[in-house]
Design a protein around this nucleic acid. Structure first.
Lengths: 125, 125
DNA sequence: ATATTAGGTGCAATAGTTCGCACCTATGCA
DNA sequence: TGCATAGGTGCGAACTATTGCACCTAATAT
């Protein structure tokens, strides 16, 4: 247990003007990790990236991701069950959309970071 | 600065998406997913969060994360091998630090998103 | 009614991750 | 010299995730 996490030393190299005062508890970390786990798979990330551009049908998403239908479906089911995406039915299509606009920033930040990493990171920032 | 073009009404079958210019290729997606996989574990996320406040020793990190030493060590090894953190040795301590300041933003964005999800959004499915 | 298209689910095999144990090296101290 | 502390590694057991297969429902078209 040891619920005494007020140990944020940060007394080493520089004076931290903006320390984060709050220690994320286990639930927060679990929730965050759960979300990240959803993003941490190339196909799902691809699907989410597509969705960050606007709502799309399963067919569109599947085609863009270049994976078999069952695979896309399973991944979409996971995203659905984890509450990251929303669905509405229109005719015989199911249209997926990102539930939270906040997620768009996260996705783009991630892709951006990876892009920097690939193109040769020159000690950024 | 939050120019989100969300809700692009691509309600039709397929519209020429000129919204996000670049389609991430497989390598980019793999790299991004690899990074996210590193973040997508509560203990590792905790460690990285600690580091986002400044460099720390293994002992400090281990204590903060509240896990056995071997576990922390394994996770730190993964972070090291994936290039997300840097180490320097000082006496008998090893001091870990985030390699890329950019990562701080990603970590905080994630924690922030999870927090928002936990506290402000009781919409459950 | 029947076929077709869009999408979903259950399940088994495989692949990858996490954890804890035992054991190792290097630094500092008495 | 010997011993404690800080940190690391290799390995096996338990767990989780991904995939592909077969099969299912709902909506449209013929």
């Amino acid at each position: 247990m040891s619920s005494q996490p007020e140990n944020v030393p940060s007394a080493a190299t520089e004076s931290p003007s903006l320390v984060h005062a709050v220690e994320p508890g286990p639930e927060l970390l679990d929730a965050a990790a759960a979300t990240l786990r959803m993003l941490a798979e190339p196909t799902r990330l691809h699907l989410l990236w597509q969705l960050s551009d606007g709502p799309k049908t399963v067919s569109e998403l599947t085609a863009a991701a270049g994976v078999p239908r069952t695979v896309a479906s399973q991944h979409l089911a996971k995203l659905r069950h984890s509450g990251l995406v929303d669905t509405r039915k229109e005719g015989r299509n199911v249209i997926y959309s990102l539930r939270d606009g906040h997620l768009v920033r996260l996705i783009r930040e991630t892709i951006n970071h990876a892009d920097h990493q690939l193109t040769g990171e020159p000690t950024h920032d």
